[in-house]
Each structure stands twice: as C-alpha cells, then as structure tokens.
C-alpha cells in the first residue's frame, strides 16, 4: 500500500480532480490477455492461410505428415487456451505458436515469456509439443520460404509507426531522496528546556 500522500488528500478534499467512477471497467491481466489475443487474431496471418501455404508448397505424399503436425499444433494450442472461447481462439493461438516457433529449435526463456504474456500460465508440455511440431512442418518446406510467408502476411495489416515521441529527449532518473545534509545533529539536551524566554 502507498504511504499517506498530500496529493491523495487533495484528491479527496478538493473538487479539482475527476471523481472516480467505480462502475467503469478496470482491466486486469486476464482481460488484457484476451484483448491482446483479439488484436493478434486481426493482424493478418490466419490458421487457414498457414494450412493453405503448406498445401500449396508440399507434394501430396508429404501433405499427410504436414497435416498431422498442424493438428499437433492445434492440439497444443487447445491445451494452452482451453475450449471456453471456441475454435477461433484455438486457431488464433495456433497461429501465435507457429509464429513463435517457426525459427526456433527449442522453447527458450523468451518464448516462454511471450506465450505466458499472451495466454497466462500454460502447460510446458504443450509448448514443447508445439515447438517440435512447428519444427517438423517447417523443415518440410524450408525455413526461408516460411520466413518470407510469415513476414508478408504479418506486415499486411500492421500500421506504419513512427519514431517514438521523446526518443531524443534527455531524461534524468534522479529523484528526491532524504539528503543526509538535511539531517540535523541529534542533541540530547531538549531545546524546549533551554529555550524558555520570558
């Protein structure tokens, strides 16, 4: 809990701040993850496009293996997101796993963090399984081809973003602290006793 603050009192006593509306929605981590998943699902690459890509780039005899690996990715996605949000959410999660692992050999710290940030706590086995399945299916067509495909699809709906505001503004992390120069000497003799002046 924050220590008592002047500005806290001013927000309560004076009427110069917006009154808090407790009925307004406040987002938590769970809601934020859902929003992020929704946004991700609108970013261009879809599960259908991934399936189509492998269908187009593989011979018929190779397609059976690819189909099995893609099913494994979907299965892992299902374990991660659950079934509460339907097939669309599962497919979107499968796309996320595909994008996360298409150029990775194993589930590293970064990948674990990315999955957790998107979906919350998840079974490690599902991440391992999806990583392995993505690796196998990508190996069938070659990583460079997949890379080009993912880049094309992902950039199609990503809006242009400029240089962040303030990038070249010098910022200091200095902060007010209790300065030892301010600290007065500790005098045992009470000033009250010495300071009587009639």
């Amino acid at each position: 809990m924050s220590p008592p603050r002047l500005t806290g009192a001013l927000r309560s006593f004076s009427n110069v701040s917006r009154q808090e509306d407790f009925t307004e929605e406040v987002y938590d981590l769970k809601a934020k993850r859902l929003k992020r998943q929704e946004r991700f699902s609108r970013e261009g690459l879809t599960w259908q496009k991934i399936v189509q890509f492998f269908t187009q780039h593989l011979e018929k005899k190779e397609q059976q293996t690819a189909t099995q690996e893609l099913k494994n990715i979907l299965q892992a996605a299902k374990q991660i997101v659950g079934t509460d949000f339907g097939q669309e959410a599962i497919e979107s999660a499968a796309v996320f796993l595909f994008k996360t692992f298409y150029s990775k050999d194993q589930v590293g710290h970064e990948e674990t963090r990315a999955i957790k940030q998107m979906f919350g706590p998840f079974p490690a086995s599902a991440a391992e399984a999806s990583c392995a399945a993505v690796g196998k299916v990508v190996a069938q067509v070659g990583e460079s081809l997949v890379e080009a495909f993912v880049q094309t699809q992902s950039s199609s709906k990503t809006p242009d973003r400029g240089e962040p505001f303030g990038r070249n503004i010098a910022f200091s992390f200095d902060t007010y602290v209790l300065d030892s120069q301010d600290t007065l000497p500790w005098l045992e003799e009470s000033e009250e006793e010495r300071g009587l002046d009639f």
Binding site: V16, S172, T175, Y176
Partner: peptide
C-alpha cells in the same frame, strides 16, 4: 482532466529532481 492540480504536484515530486 488530463492534468489537474494533484497530478501536477505528483509530476513534480516524481520527476522534478532531474527534469
């Protein structure tokens, strides 16, 4: 209410030392 007096005071005490 992008800025109000308590917010301005908070800004000063949080960032004012070096900025």
């Amino acid at each position: 209410f992008l800025f109000d007096i308590p917010k301005i005071l908070d800004l000063c005490v949080l960032f004012g030392k070096g900025n």
